[in-house]
Design a protein around this nucleic acid. Structure first.
Length: 318
RNA sequence: GGCGGGAUAGCUCAGAUGGUAGAGCAGCGGACUGAAAAUCCGCGUGUCCCCAGUUCGAUUCUGGGUCCCGCCA
């Protein structure tokens, strides 16, 4: 296969509630760009308030991609995301505009720019359920032992309690007859390596301030229609069975509407889980490279955007 | 004021018939290859409220004190 010149792109990363959205919009306007949302909740229709989706009117002014591309009863995968992005980048390129990736789902960045997902690896929801049932009845260790037999390499990498990954590895083996580690080692990838040359712009602020911002945001969501949104989703049959409804806030509010916890407990649970997530995000982002960090404490968005714009232009012209 | 209960990790609490203590939550670190806001792993020294007594040894027993929570006045 012929090697194409890598496409220079920028990505605005950072933990939740630092101001990525505002910066990405400002930057898109300055650069004549379009935003590609990298957010595992915003891909779902009807998850608006809890997913901090920006309004349609703003999306009309600055074009956005990868928002509202799946229904809440679908299982939208990282691979779906990668394929969608590939199309979006093509369309943006055809308009001679610049794609600006922005969002807080590290795994999606990894899938897209890490060029690691293999081509044509299937999945099977029924098989997953079956394996999970086995784990419930006979214990997680049984599955891990089974994996050790067919794929010792992957088994040694995974903890026996990490049911998600153990199930996935068994699924790959069962469905393709080949084990996961050999797929991963091969070079048939969804995105060829070196397809993108990414400049990561990282936004952050000291953790106590981050936690304050998270608390403020969750309170705001609860006061501006988040519970009603979840109630409506439940009335349409979109419940905790689906991954779309297993994010923080959503799962707590489902519990609330099931009468298991109070509204205040739901808010506190949401805040707690969001903080924990922001920590996990930072663990990922700290390994992304190259990354230029900006502190958004007391920042003025246009000033910050101007500074970032300079940084970005140097990268794009290279 | 009287009676009873309590005081142990940031919070809620457990515990040892006396040998200086441990869970959950929070916090912190990490992993991550098609569910990722998911899933999973690791990290626990703190005047055991204060003073005195008994004792080789007290956070544990005894006495007193302080504070908190109930109930009764």
């Amino acid at each position: 296969m012929e090697k194409k010149k890598p496409l220079s792109v920028i990505a605005i990363v950072g933990p939740t509630a630092v101001g990525k959205t505002a910066v990405s919009i400002e930057l898109a306007e300055r650069l004549g760009g379009e935003v590609v949302s990298v957010d595992s909740r915003q891909v779902y229709r009807y998850l608006d308030v809890g997913a901090d989706k920006i309004s349609l009117s703003i999306r009309k002014k600055v074009l956005h991609h990868m928002i509202d591309v799946a229904d809440p009863d679908q299982v939208f995968s990282a691979a779906d995301f990668v394929l969608g992005c590939r199309d979006a980048v093509e369309r943006i390129g055809a308009r001679e505009r610049i794609p600006i990736f922005a969002g807080g789902t590290p795994f999606y960045y990894e899938a897209l720019f890490g060029s690691r997902l293999s081509k044509n690896l299937p999945r099977d929801e029924d098989l997953r359920r079956e394996l999970e049932e086995t784990a419930r009845r006979e214990g997680k260790k049984v599955l891990h032992d089974r994996l050790r037999e067919v794929d010792p390499c992957t088994a040694s990498r995974l903890h026996e309690n990490d049911l998600r990954r153990v199930v996935r590895a068994l699924e790959i083996h069962r469905l393709t007859g080949k084990n996961a580690s050999s797929w991963y080692a091969g070079d048939e990838k969804l995105i060829p390596s070196g397809a993108y040359d990414v400049l990561y712009i990282g936004l952050t602020r000291p953790r106590p301030l981050l936690f304050e911002a998270i608390e403020r945001r969750v309170r705001e969501q609860f006061a501006s229609g988040f519970p009603e949104e979840v109630e409506w989703l439940l009335s349409r049959g979109f419940d905790e069975r689906f991954p779309s409804m297993q994010g923080f806030g959503y799962r707590e509010l489902v519990q609330y509407f099931r009468g298991k916890i109070t509204l205040e407990e739901a808010a506190l649970g949401d805040i707690r889980a969001t903080k924990a997530f922001s920590r996990r995000q930072m663990t990922w982002f700290s390994k992304f490279s190259p990354i230029v960090w900006y502190d958004t404490t007391d920042c003025i968005i246009p000033d910050l955007a101007e500074e970032i714009e300079k940084e970005v232009r140097t990268h794009l012209e290279k």
